[in-house]
């Protein structure tokens, strides 16, 4: 509900910290547990994690998987999702710069090695993602 305001604040030069809702960025980012820091979406690149209003008319924080600079058409996919969403470049409100995980809010920069390694692995494991997510869901310590 506050998402348009988040966009406004970011345009004014703030960064915004918020708790992530939803399971679509599993396994790295967990629903209600982890926080992200959002900043202005400058110099967007494929593989950035962005806050966007999709053409399917919902706000998501998902990975940018394709971007057509000429037409401004973008394709997004949550790490925990199998399906895609579409958006226009101008509907990207912000990008995630950092992730704060778990109670201790352990800090991961999206420019850091941990995220980059995870990112590389997880995107390359896309063909078997369905099975990895199914296993992840059944892990005893995963939130139901």
């Amino acid at each position: 509900m506050l998402i348009p305001e988040v966009g406004k604040l970011i345009n004014e030069g703030h960064t915004v910290t918020m708790t992530v809702r939803g399971r679509s960025m599993r396994p790295f980012i967990e629903d209600g547990r982890d926080k992200v820091i959002l900043a202005k979406a400058d110099n967007l690149r494929v593989n950035d994690v962005v806050l966007a209003k999709t053409l399917e008319k919902s706000y998501v924080i998902h990975r940018l998987t394709e971007m057509d600079d000429a037409t401004g058409e973008c394709i997004l996919r949550g790490d925990g999702n199998l399906d895609l969403e579409h958006c226009r470049k101008e509907d990207i409100l912000a990008k995630v710069t950092d992730i704060l995980r778990k109670k201790k809010e352990k800090h991961y920069s999206l420019e850091g090695t941990t995220w980059k390694t995870y990112s590389w692995l997880w995107t390359h494991l896309r063909p078997v993602r369905r099975y990895l997510l199914a296993i992840y869901r059944r892990l005893p310590w995963t939130q139901r």
Partner: peptide, 21 residues
């Protein structure tokens, strides 16, 4: 003080991080 979606919220005005939590 700003009104956001009909709610009154207090938000910092300087350039700093706004923690929505």
């Amino acid at each position: 003080l700003r009104t956001v979606c009909g709610e009154n919220v207090v938000i910092p005005t300087g350039i700093e991080n706004v923690n929505f939590d």
